[in-house]
Design a protein around this nucleic acid. Structure first.
Lengths: 328, 328
DNA sequence: TTGAAAGCGATACCAT
DNA sequence: ATGGTATCGCTTTCAA
């Protein structure tokens, strides 16, 4: 692997000159012929600078580290992430996702800190805690932000408040005259961070109306859904908020197969406004989530990196709107 | 940010000793009291080693770089990736995903090479070409592997042969007596790498049977599906392989709404064997994909890293099986 | 058992 | 306009 010294030797100049040329340093003037010789030498050797060496010398990097979320990202979130990465690269950051499955919060923060990222954009509050934030800041991270349902002490928060989603759904169901609302809680690990606040939101909407709110565990498979559907009549519910469109589809099918009328006997509401909801019969009512613009977020990150002094900011990013269709 | 020198000062020892203690170097014996002092000092200062400095000195890293695929990963692939990352970490690698949207192949390879990863696991053949492989190898990557439908000169190939998927679907449809097979080609960018070989597979299955194979563009939205369904009778098809279960769901709904009987008039087949397919009526026939074990793959990566000399290997990883249900 | 020092690759200051 | 060189944080011989 060729180094800048190799390039220098081949071009017959010093390593300093190589650095000046390849980085287009403006503070120093290099003659055109020299520039050409250096460029050609670099090209010929297939020289690629060593990021670690560079950032060691510079004392900082342009790496934005994004820990991979623990639950698989849906299409909505994937799209948002893509946009964000693209926008960050345009601002000349190197975006890197770090898989941290099976690490405790502090372990994870340490692992991230070892890479000395200039910014960390952590999903949810799953892994990162106040101690982790501290470790990261002390390791030189200029911006530590969380992106998810909760805020974390010391970090900027880009709140995607899941309670709003639940509130939206709850309010819609109540406005349709429903009085007993089931709320699906996915049994799969890692969903609590989202499902708990959604449940809370439904509860908040029901507050004072005298309506009943009942959490219901459900695994994402046919059999569990069938079992739930079998005891549905006993539950005495006239509505259900199914966590999201996929669980809604699962439950709706099971309920229909068990003879429960939708929306007659029970109203079903999803969330995320996926295309599949529109393909169901009856068409699935849902909560549409307005994801934040990746562009805007990237600019926020950049602002914090450039001026790290400020107090942690809290931004609310998620817009929720009920989309009534035929299942409610 | 504290350095090992700070720890040394606080513990009243040399930097060398700090390194020995924190890395549990066995070649050298440090007294227990000293170890304790060093550990306590490191703890107190919140010392986190600097990965860049370490790998600069060592001349190599333990970073496995995985460029993010250009199309959003489905649940199948996400799960597989998680497993792989987990297995790699158990082998003491640091797994990092690098988003490379909007970079040309060679640009991307350079960006990856700057990080001096010990291994690169590139999806598909989307970005990486033979030149890129070369750049990576010369930058010190011990293992360069591609994970997807095509192989790339110079790199090990973990082939997930999409033609098999198409072949499976085609063979199943033909065995049911179908003679005119439509094949859905997603209109969204980035899907060609998967849809083209799947189409090829259907063609191969039809080879010599006299059956007709017709590619059909389809965007993932209701309107486009409705338009396709409207001209369906004119197409004279008695079967369709819908690329995957999601497109199948979309198309099936549109066909049913337009009055086409399934499977009477047209057999519909998906792929991926997602749960949603089982929830449809009629239940969707599909192609089940057996994803490779992340554990096995991690071991392969590790083997190549330890013994980089060997010739590029080609492994076929995808097992496809037709799952007949009610839509065919 | 511990410390001094060389060196990994790149950069930026200070000379020339 | 260009070159010499100290420096970033860490590991690892070699000496003591």
């Amino acid at each position: 692997m060729p180094t800048s010294a190799d390039v220098a030797r081949l071009a017959g100049v010093s390593r300093a000159t190589v650095s000046y040329v390849l980085n287009n340093t403006t503070a120093v003037r290099i003659s055109e012929p020299t520039r050409r010789r250096v460029r050609e030498a670099a090209e010929e050797l297939g020289y690629v600078p060593h990021a670690a060496a560079r950032s060691l010398r510079a004392g900082h990097s342009r790496m934005v580290l994004m820990p991979t979320p623990h639950i698989p990202a849906g299409p909505l979130y994937s799209h948002f992430l893509n946009e964000l990465q693209w926008a960050l690269r345009r601002l000349d950051y190197t975006v890197v996702q770090h898989g941290s499955v099976g690490m405790s919060g502090d372990e994870a923060a340490r692992a991230w800190a070892e890479l000395r990222p200039v910014a960390v954009l952590a999903p949810g509050a799953g892994t990162l805690g106040p101690r982790g934030v501290n470790v990261l800041k002390r390791s030189g991270a200029k911006a530590v932000l969380t992106l998810g349902p909760e805020r974390v002490e010391g970090a900027h928060a880009l709140l995607m408040d899941q309670r709003e989603v639940g509130h939206c759904a709850g309010a819609h169901l109540l406005s349709g005259g429903r009085r007993s609302i089931g709320v699906i809680m996915p049994a799969e690990a890692g969903f609590e961070t989202f499902s708990a606040p959604r449940l809370e939101g439904v509860r908040a909407a029901a507050e004072g109306t005298g309506a009943r709110v009942v959490p219901l565990g459900l695994a994402y498979d046919e059999q569990d859904a069938a079992e739930l559907a079998a005891r549905w009549p006993d539950l005495g519910l006239d509505a259900v908020f199914a966590y999201n469109d996929e669980y809604a589809m699962l439950l709706m099918r099971a309920l229909q197969d068990a003879g429960t009328g939708i929306p007659g006997d029970t109203a079903v509401m999803g969330a995320d406004d996926l295309l599949i909801g529109r393909l169901l019969r009856p068409r699935l009512s849902t909560v549409h989530l307005e994801m934040p613009s990746g562009q805007l977020l990237a600019e926020f990150v950049d602002r914090v990196v450039r001026d790290p002094g400020g107090a942690p900011e809290v931004h609310h990013l998620l817009g929720s709107t009920a989309v009534p269709r035929d299942s409610t």
